[in-house]
Simulated assay, not measured.
Amino acid sequence: MQSANIVPSVVRPAGRGLNIGLWMAQIVLALMFGLAGVMKTTQPIAELAQKLVWPGAVPPGLVRFIGTAEFLGALGLVLPSVTRVRPRLTPLAAAGLVTVMALASVFHLMRGEFNAIAFNLVLGSAAAFVAWGRYRQAPLAPRGS
Rank of each mutant, 00 (worst) to 15 (best):
2 Q>A: 06
2 Q>D: 10
3 S>I: 10
3 S>Q: 15
3 S>T: 08
4 A>F: 00
4 A>K: 02
4 A>Q: 07
4 A>I: 03
6 I>Y: 03
7 V>K: 09
7 V>I: 03
8 P>C: 01
9 S>F: 06
17 G>N: 10
17 G>L: 15
19 N>I: 01
19 N>R: 14
20 I>G: 08
21 G>Q: 09
24 M>W: 15
27 I>Q: 10
28 V>C: 05
28 V>E: 11
31 L>N: 05
33 F>Q: 01
34 G>A: 02
40 K>L: 15
43 Q>G: 00
44 P>N: 14
45 I>Q: 07
46 A>C: 12
47 E>N: 10
47 E>K: 09
50 Q>S: 15
50 Q>D: 14
54 W>H: 06
54 W>S: 05
56 G>P: 09
57 A>F: 14
58 V>E: 07
58 V>D: 11
59 P>K: 01
59 P>H: 05
62 L>V: 15
63 V>I: 13
65 F>R: 07
65 F>C: 04
67 G>S: 12
67 G>T: 07
67 G>F: 06
67 G>C: 10
70 E>D: 13
72 L>F: 15
73 G>D: 13
73 G>K: 07
73 G>S: 10
73 G>L: 15
76 G>Q: 07
76 G>M: 08
77 L>M: 10
77 L>D: 09
78 V>Y: 13
79 L>I: 15
82 V>L: 14
82 V>N: 04
82 V>P: 03
82 V>A: 15
83 T>K: 11
84 R>M: 00
84 R>S: 00
85 V>R: 09
85 V>E: 12
87 P>N: 02
88 R>Y: 11
89 L>R: 05
89 L>V: 03
91 P>S: 12
91 P>C: 10
92 L>R: 00
94 A>N: 01
95 A>W: 09
95 A>M: 04
96 G>F: 13
97 L>E: 14
97 L>K: 06
98 V>H: 14
98 V>T: 13
98 V>G: 08
103 L>F: 12
104 A>D: 13
104 A>F: 15
105 S>I: 07
105 S>P: 07
106 V>H: 07
108 H>G: 13
110 M>I: 00
113 E>N: 03
115 N>G: 14
116 A>C: 04
116 A>Y: 02
119 F>M: 11
122 V>K: 01
124 G>W: 05
125 S>W: 06
125 S>E: 02
126 A>K: 03
127 A>D: 14
128 A>H: 01
128 A>I: 06
128 A>G: 09
130 V>S: 00
130 V>E: 08
132 W>C: 02
132 W>P: 04
132 W>M: 05
132 W>H: 08
133 G>L: 00
133 G>I: 00
134 R>T: 00
138 A>P: 14
138 A>K: 09
139 P>M: 06
143 R>N: 05
144 G>T: 01
144 G>R: 01
145 S>H: 08
145 S>T: 05
